[in-house]
Each structure stands twice: as C-alpha cells, then as structure tokens.
Computed example of a mutant assay.
Amino acid sequence: MLEISTDWGCYPFVTDRGILKTFIEQQDLKCSLAELESIVKPIFIRNVQQAIEVSPAKEVLGAKNFVSHLLDSDKYVVSIATGGWGETARIKLESAGFNVEKLEITSSNDHFSRIKIMQLAKSKMNQTGDYPITYFGDAEWDLKACEQLAVNIVIVGSRVNHHQRIQNFSCLESALRFVK
C-alpha cells in the first residue's frame, strides 16, 4: 500500500493536483497524472461530501458578508483561487452558506501550480491591466506564491505570521483596509 505524506510543506506544489504529481514522481509510478487523478479525485470528493454531512463547513466569521460586500460593489472584481479541486471547494463553500453561483473559482482542476492557478484566476476575470490584487490566505504556501507574484496578501487566522493579518472578517472595515 502506498501512502501520501501529509507534511504539505515537503511538496513543491501544495495543491491537490500538485501533491498527486509529486507523489507519482517520488514513487516512480507508471501512470499519468490524469490517470491517477481520475481514480483518486472521485474518492476524495466523496470523502469530503461525507465529512461535510457529518460536520458542515463553518464560515470564517464574517466571510460571507465580506464577499457579498465585494461582489455587490462596482469597485472590486472577485475571484477565488484555491489549491483544492473545484468540486470540493464548491462543496465546502456551499456547506458554509456561500452562494457559489456568484463566485468565479479557479482551482487545482485548472493547474497543479498555485502560482499558475492565481494567474489563471486573474485572466478568467478578463483583467489584462496592471491593477492591484489582494489575496486572502492562511498558509505559508500562500505567502510564498504572493511573494513570487508580487501580490498583496492578507493572512486570515493565526497559522502564519505576517504584517497584514486579520483573525476573521467580523469587522468589515478592518478587512477592507488591506484591499488595494
């Protein structure tokens, strides 16, 4: 039996597809990324669905109001870039009460690299200009990707230290003051 390490920091691409890609390379498997993904992904999606049925996803305090505020404003363009697969991102967001129909989600379905996912998220919004981007994340790999792309980042929660950090979105003004 083969096991995947859950030490996410040891993977060059900390995304669902990136972890599988690295796993194939490390184990010298004789299957393609697409082949392994077609086996693993449906099982993973089913496992997430079952876990959500037992314990629904919880909104980070104030996040729905924050996202709604951005979506309702003509000052902002909103796009989600996630290292998870799109299907599981939607399951989790819906479980937490978000209206996913209003959200443009770019995910590990689109690429194995977090940086490329972020670049694709921008291009999907038909934004070719050099406008400011603010990324809200919660992990070291978010910091690294934003640093490489020179993107403004706000850390949510306390997993990572960063000079721009909020605990949650309960104070709309506090979150908005970091948006460029």
Rank of each mutant, 00 (worst) to 15 (best):
S107V: 06
E59A: 10
F66D: 03
E53S: 13
L36W: 05
T106V: 15
I52G: 09
H111S: 15
V14G: 00
D110I: 02
R17F: 00
L70P: 13
S107L: 08
Q50F: 06
F98R: 10
V60H: 01
S95C: 07
F23V: 02
K58Y: 04
K41L: 12
I52R: 07
L33Y: 05
S108M: 02
L71H: 06
A96Y: 09
V48F: 01
A57I: 03
S108C: 02
R46A: 13
D72C: 10
D28H: 14
Q50T: 09
R17L: 11
K102H: 11
S55Q: 13
E35P: 02
A34P: 01
L71W: 07
E35D: 14
N47P: 04
D28I: 03
L61M: 10
K41M: 12
S68W: 02
D72N: 15
I80N: 02
H69K: 11
V60N: 05
K64L: 11
H111L: 00
P42T: 07
A81W: 12
F44S: 12
S107I: 07
E87W: 04
G84P: 03
N65P: 01
T106L: 11
S32D: 09
E25D: 14
S68M: 05
G83V: 04
K41S: 11
S79N: 10
P56D: 03
I43P: 00
V40T: 05
Q27P: 00
A51Y: 05
Q50L: 14
A81P: 13
K75D: 14
